[in-house]
Nucleic acid binder design. Structure first.
Lengths: 237, 237
DNA sequence: ACCTGAACACCGTTCAAGT
DNA sequence: ACCTGAACACCGTTCAAGT
């Protein structure tokens, strides 16, 4: 079996593996570093949103040319991959020791969600990307330990951890462009539901008010449902 | 309260509402129609992927200029919004009548997921967009009916329906760029997990093989967990 | 050895000009 | 009244040329 000639896509397992075998790029005395590029990118993302994360803007932030960035990063996609993994690390912190496994999982899920809602730019980059960077893997290892410790088989524990992460990330992205703190949006929603054809979608018309401002309810209901379901899996194992 | 002067973003409740109050664009005898544009876009999406869905390519497919498209669609974003809602309709079909509410929900979720996996382009457009178009609302109404019929309060039923949709969409997008039928990817994953530092992520190293090919397990575990959790919510109501 | 300026091939969007 | 050609202001990426 010989080495594949095609470049692996950033973010894939093959890419992270290939990355390690490359000779480390020599440290420059010059100021431009990968760390610096990621710092600037993250700041840009928080201040001006995901659409503003362009190579030109990053370069401008760092007072260099776009071409210089390609000395530290092969692609924009590679930059995004590294950025996402770094941003994830901020969200992973140890939950309170005295909680049980479900309490710890809920605590981490809520914290991760809050982090993403405070940094919507990061959240929107997170959609659809694989998460195999070192920080992502650390989080995965933690969740796996939690569920195995609770009594799930490794296989089911892995699926459970994955499901939970999928749900948290999905719940953030669902409301992304929508500023839920903006009362206008919920007003428009109510108006939309109310004005539908009652013979086609009767329940939306009837429960328009309830549906209009679900807010965090969706997340909490889904979260407890998942954890309750995991608990049931343990008892039936 | 006067009309807002800012244009609502495509996909928001305000946008769908405003759309209805506009005078319908007169039917042309010319061949170019909104329907035709959406047909061509969907074909493009399936054949060449989400990245190929550009105004230029759509125009080329229809033998017209890019500018002509803007006669039927205000934005690319608007085109995407309409496209997503239309694509959703294909996935919504009536589940078998003899199943209970959980069986019906599971059937629909699996069907929706399969549809999205067969059309990854649609799935990637789906991330992060609001889903308030007529077909999306029909699906929402159906799910709401299912959960209310099962005994949940309208509020909890709405949150449950939302959670389920979030999970299904999230589960597809997680594996997007990754061709899971490609054995190489799972091999690389196993290799990645195995070669991690066992003092940092011991569980990933230990269970590398299990983690490498989770496949559809993640979805099934999450799905049954959610439904089990919903059932528990009913009994405690 | 490193960085730059300038270009290339793309985007979405607009609008005067044609028919 | 409708459609077009051509432009505008952006993208990501590359590379010969400078220092």
């Amino acid at each position: 079996m010989h080495e594949p000639t095609t470049e692996p896509r950033p973010g894939t397992a093959a890419w992270w593996l290939a990355r390690e075998n490359e000779p480390e790029r020599p440290r420059r005395r010059r100021s431009l570093t990968l760390e610096g590029i990621l710092d600037a990118s993250l700041a840009l993302l928080d201040e001006r949103g995901a659409a503003a994360l362009t190579m030109r803007n990053v370069a401008e932030e760092l007072d260099c040319t776009q071409a210089s960035l390609y000395r530290h990063v092969r692609n924009r996609e590679e930059l995004v991959t590294l950025l996402v993994d770094r941003a994830i690390s901020v969200a992973s912190a140890a939950p309170p020791e005295d909680a049980d496994w479900a309490g710890k999982a809920a605590w981490s899920a809520r914290r991760f969600r809050e982090h993403l809602r405070r940094h919507p730019g990061v959240a929107s980059l997170l959609r659809g990307t694989e998460r195999l960077g070192p920080n992502s893997l650390a989080g995965m290892n933690y969740a796996l330990g939690l569920f195995i410790g609770a009594g799930l088989s490794p296989r089911v524990a892995a699926a459970a951890a994955s499901s939970l992460a999928t749900f948290v990330i999905g719940s953030v992205n669902f409301n992304l462009g929508v500023d839920t703190r903006d009362p206008e949006e919920s007003r428009h929603r109510r108006q939309l539901f109310r004005s539908r054809d009652a013979s086609v979608v009767p329940l939306l018309v009837e429960h328009a008010d309830t549906l209009a401002d679900l807010g965090d309810d969706e997340f909490e209901v889904g979260l407890t449902a998942l954890l309750t379901g995991f608990r049931a899996l343990i008892e039936n194992d």
